[in-house]
């Protein structure tokens, strides 16, 4: 079974600080592996006889995210790194992943991703990628019910209810949780992770259409960014006065 896990290195959003002119201070912010990607990695780890490739896009420092992923699972790592990829919105990102899978990775049975990246929180890339690859996808997955050579059954929890899906390969699954065996990486996993060579490839290698990647290939752009407004002024009262306020 060939499995591809797409991951993302993100800034730790609990550690965001501001400059004097109300901009986000990007320097010195700690990078972490996107939390819901860990569910995808745990899912990959739970599948027996799997050949697991970990794929990410980003600057060379994103190798750390792949190494972090290797602590859970994986025997091949691919980093898409090219300044022509930078500034990509979800569509340009999905296309970049699409060309990588179609022209470079070629063979796969299952693609696993996290449901959302905690920094952007759009949750759009997995759906766009599956659509471009013209394969079925299931979102909000939190459990693999069973998997065999021919099919996979999963549980997906959406706001409308709980769904049991059955699909054939190739398929893309995005995880919002993982109801299965947890794993805390051990020292030996960190050592193993350092020893796996990571392939770093650029836009030419994947045969990307250069007009459709990075900032050039992104239909959306940020027109302005600002700090959320807050106009409330708090009046402090005693607990016994509370009842009068709840009306």
């Amino acid at each position: 079974m060939k499995i591809l896990v797409c991951i993302k290195q993100i800034p730790d959003t609990s550690d965001v600080r501001w400059t004097k002119d109300n901009n986000i201070l990007r320097e010195g912010v700690i990078s972490i592996l996107n939390p819901s990607d860990i569910y995808a990695l745990l899912a990959a780890k739970s599948i027996e006889n799997a050949d697991v490739t970990v794929l990410t896009m980003g600057p060379s420092a994103s190798k750390n995210a792949i190494k972090r992923a290797f602590c859970y699972v994986g025997n091949r790592g691919i980093l898409l790194s090219d300044k022509r990829f930078s500034g990509a919105d979800t569509l340009a990102t999905a296309k970049t992943l699409y060309w990588t899978i179609k022209n470079y990775i070629k063979e796969f049975d299952i693609i696993l991703t996290g449901q959302f990246a905690q920094d952007g929180d759009t949750g759009q890339t997995p759906y766009s990628l599956a659509n471009l690859l013209n394969i079925p996808n299931i979102g909000y997955v939190n459990k693999i019910n069973y998997i065999n050579e021919n099919e996979i059954s999963v549980t997906s929890v959406k706001d409308s209810g709980i769904y049991q899906y059955k699909g054939k390969f190739p398929i893309l699954l995005s995880f919002s949780k993982f109801d299965g065996k947890d794993y805390i990486p051990l020292a030996k996993d960190y050592i193993r992770a350092q020893e796996i060579k990571i392939e770093t490839i650029n836009a030419d290698v994947i045969g990307a259409n250069l007009d459709e990647i990075g900032i050039k290939g992104s239909p959306t752009y940020v027109y302005k960014a600002f700090k959320p407004q807050n106009n409330r002024v708090c009046k402090f009262i005693e607990p016994c006065e509370l009842i009068g306020e709840i009306k």
Binding site: L91, A94, Y127, S128, K158, T220
Partner: peptide, 23 residues
Amino acid sequence: STTEGREIAPIVASSLNTGLTAD
């Protein structure tokens, strides 16, 4: 921005090669 809307929107956007802003 329900799960239904958030699943359908990126499929439509990527099919039409257009941009999508979430949530």
